[in-house]
Write a protein that binds this DNA or RNA. Structure first.
Length: 760
DNA sequence: CCATTCGATGTTTTT
DNA sequence: CATCGAATGG
């Protein structure tokens, strides 16, 4: 424990506001922290201060974050201040709940419950939909799941939903909801939302648990409070108790997870829920230049549902924000990649450069372009490793072992097993129904069905035998178990010998999973984890760990690589040089079919993006963007007009200007200057219409024009089809199609754009 | 039972 | 264009 000097040290280099928050005594505290205002610093210092002053021993402090990554980072910073392994619990809501529920048993489940991720959930909904004989086209499992999750976030039960249902569709959703809940209970499973809801129920119904937890965790700190949903806020408040020691930190302007149930009122109305709360506002920004901050501030002031907050900074004026209007998305990618290169040449460390986009699908072109230029880069949160099919296939074996009631996973095993198809499975299910057995038990008894052929019976037995063999090896650790799985099932071998390079990459994932298992064992052997040493608990813990890992957690912050990520993933990070691409109407705010965009939320999203930057921001737009292989013309995002002009330097890439909304400025890079003037841009409020090929913009025509001096009779070569002769050419611009009679494969019609024909 | 092919269909954001 | 699911043929 620290002395007075240590205490002074904790407060030494803080501003008055920061100090007020850090050294707040008992009772509720809300810290409204603007971007770059030293929020994490305040939390970690406060933890240190509580310990140093003896207000609470470390193990009575609970700090809650949203992502594992944030938790890790916070733990690290707390360790730096107070020493490692002091026992401060830093956890995400979900893993804190999972852990507590495992200890006390969630209502209606046993402690060995499975945690269902989105894939599992969808599969489960799908089964319900089939069971109810609904048309999957009309009732798409993913849509239904979204509705169900939404309801759960609002703490509505299936019955609640049913009683509020309007019309047939709602009624049906309510029925699916109910069946889905039944299925989860039967499988002894909880989905992500249930982890929170069960926790609420546990705290509300079990006074002993509530008291135990309250005396255990006397100080609660919640980061990113603006992103809490109803159950999360309820949990935090139940843990804290009335007038308890709850400290919430956040920024309503950075609330960007409404689609997932985040309730911005939790933070806006915190004081109403806690009349005794003290509020501290952190408005000084230490991160960005004056210009960036001014731009962000002016932008966000267009929101109506917010509480005024005025940020300021003592930092430099800085460079203007670049706004670049490109002729096409291809060119945007080229331009950005070049600008990234240039930034690196100017001395920016690659790891200090980031590219943000609204939708993940946009990443591809930038990736390709960076790869072409050999710029090291990394897509953050691209494909969540532990959610890849091959990884989940392997994990399914462990999951069945951990929770044999999980029929969903048992089915998965069946699907993985050669010779065990739907027909055989149905027979096993019938057997289960007849005898009142669990699916897995029925598989053991498969011999009692006369109508299962020996070949199929053997397949079923293989599954059971492997599970038994794995159970035997459970004490050896997760690594050996995983290894046994891939060896016995031959999954890695099968993938590795595939023709398809993508498949072979999957083999690497399987291998990496086994490695992760061994690493887990090692970490555990070193005494890192708590709980029973070795044995069956091990792989359960491994599964929990894996289930609650998010894509963002996979990011390794390598100093040497440029980062690409969605605007959502950018929250909480900072970079010297930020590129926000795809700043087009329709994309930002993102418009979805049949739904009005949530403009304020989208504006906050851009606000988050802008305020990640320390030194430079570049926003890019494209006149023509390709989606579904179709060209659509786009207007710039309306948000661009909300940024003060004096903070902007506007450029057109391709000898073009910004549609008159801004002063025309000299071009930066002019790959396709000519021909641009012949094209009058459609600037219909984003929702660009599909245009016939002849109206294809000049840029694209220029791009496609290169080989189009082809005439019938020319000899050409194609990468796949080999050599051939051009028979006919139809269409113009991007829609140009070439009919080629190939020597080897006969006549094919190719889209000139993609065919990549070489004249010979 | 399985592999291949064809057609339709689709694009947020994530614990 | 890419991916997925269903249909189809072996």
């Amino acid at each position: 424990m620290m002395d007075r000097a240590g205490e002074a040290l904790i407060l030494a280099d803080l501003t008055d506001e920061q100090r007020a928050a850090v050294s707040h005594g008992e009772g509720p505290l809300i810290v409204v922290a603007g971007p770059g205002s030293g929020k994490t610093r305040v939390i970690t210092r406060r933890v240190a201060w509580l310990i140093a002053t003896g207000a609470a021993p470390p193990w009575q402090i609970l700090a809650i974050t949203f992502t594992n990554k944030a938790a890790e980072e916070m733990r690290r910073r707390i360790d730096d201040l107070v020493g490692a392994g002091t026992g401060v619990l830093v956890s995400t809501f979900h893993s804190f709940c999972a852990r507590t529920l495992r200890r006390y048993g969630p209502p209606g489940r046993t402690e060995s419950f499975a945690i269902y991720d989105e894939d599992d959930q969808r599969a489960c909904v799908k089964r319900v939909v089939e069971e109810l004989r609904l048309d999957e086209k009309v009732f798409r499992p993913a849509d239904l799941l979204a509705k169900i999750s939404q309801a759960k976030n609002r703490m509505l039960s299936a019955e609640d939903y049913a009683s509020g249902a309007l019309g047939f569709r709602d009624d049906t959703i309510a029925r699916v909801f109910g069946k889905y809940e039944e299925a989860l209970a039967r499988f002894n499973a909880l989905d992500f939302d249930d982890l929170l809801l069960s926790m609420v129920r546990l705290l509300e119904t079990r006074q002993d648990v509530r008291d135990a937890l309250r005396s255990r965790y006397r100080y609660i700190l919640v980061d990113e409070y603006q992103d809490t949903n109803l159950p999360q806020a309820r949990i935090a408040n139940l843990l804290a108790g009335e007038n308890g020691n709850i400290c919430v930190v956040g920024d309503p302007d950075q609330s960007i997870y409404r689609f997932r149930g985040a309730e911005i009122l939790n933070i806006l109305d915190f004081e109403r829920a806690h009349p005794a709360a003290r509020e501290v506002r952190l408005e000084r920004n230490y991160r960005s230049t004056k210009r960036i901050l001014a731009a962000a501030q002016r932008l966000i002031e267009h929101n109506i549902a917010r509480r005024a907050k005025t940020l300021y900074t003592e930092n430099d004026e800085g460079d203007p924000i670049r706004v670049v209007r490109c002729l096409s998305d291809d060119e945007e990618a080229r331009w950005v990649a070049r600008a990234v290169e240039e930034s690196i040449e100017r001395g920016t460390p690659p790891g200090e450069i980031a590219i943000f986009y609204r939708v993940a699908a946009l990443s591809r072109k930038f990736e390709e372009e960076l790869r072409r230029r050999a710029v090291r880069h990394q897509v953050v949160g691209a494909v969540p490793f532990f959610q890849r099919k091959e990884v989940k296939d392997v994990l399914a074996w462990l999951r069945v072992l951990a929770n044999p009631a999980d029929e969903q996973q048992v089915r998965r095993l069946a699907a993985l097993t050669e010779g065990l198809g739907p027909a055989t499975l149905r027979r096993v299910e019938e057997l289960a129904a007849e005898r009142g057995l669990a699916l897995l038990e029925a598989m053991r008894a498969v011999g009692e069905r006369g109508d299962v052929r020996p070949q199929e019976r053997r397949a079923v037995e293989r599954v059971v035998q492997l599970l038994d063999a794995l159970a035997e090896r459970a004490r050896e650790g997760v690594g050996p178990m995983l290894r046994a799985i891939i060896e016995e099932t031959g999954i890695e071998r099968a993938l590795r010998s595939s023709e398809n390079p993508q498949e072979r990459a999957r083999a690497e994932n399987v291998r990496a999973l086994v490695d992760a298992g061994y690493e887990f064992d090692e970490r555990r052997a070193r005494g890192g984890a708590q709980g029973d040493a070795g044995g069956a608990g091990d792989f359960r813990e491994f599964l929990d760990h894996v289930a609650l890992l998010s894509p963002a957690d996979q990011a390794e912050d390598e100093f040497a690589t440029v980062k690409l990520m969605t605007l959502h993933a950018a929250k909480g990070l900072e970079f010297d040089d930020v590129f926000i691409v795809g700043a087009d109407a329709g994309f930002l705010p993102l418009e979805r079919e049949g739904e009005a965009p949530d403009v304020e939320e989208e504006r906050r999203l851009l606000y988050v993006g802008l305020t990640r930057a320390r030194r430079r921001v570049t926003l890019t737009t494209a006149r023509v963007r390709r989606t579904y292989g179709q060209d659509r013309s786009c207007a710039p995002s309306p948000f661009l007009a909300e940024i003060p002009r004096e903070a902007i330097e506007q450029r057109g890439a391709g000898g073009d200007d910004l549609d008159g909304a801004y002063e025309p400025l000299p071009s930066f890079d002019v790959p396709f200057a000519r021909g641009a003037e012949s094209f009058a841009p459609a600037r219909r409020n984003g929702r660009a219409e599909r245009r016939p090929p002849d109206f294809a913009p000049a840029v694209v025509r220029a791009a496609a024009a290169r080989p189009s001096d082809l005439v019938p009779g020319d000899r050409v070569e194609h990468a796949v089809f080999g050599k051939g002769q051009v028979v006919d050419i139809t269409g113009t611009g991007i829609g140009t199609r070439v009919k080629v009679e190939f020597d080897a494969v006969g006549i094919k019609t190719l889209v000139l754009q993609y065919a990549n024909l070489q004249r010979i």
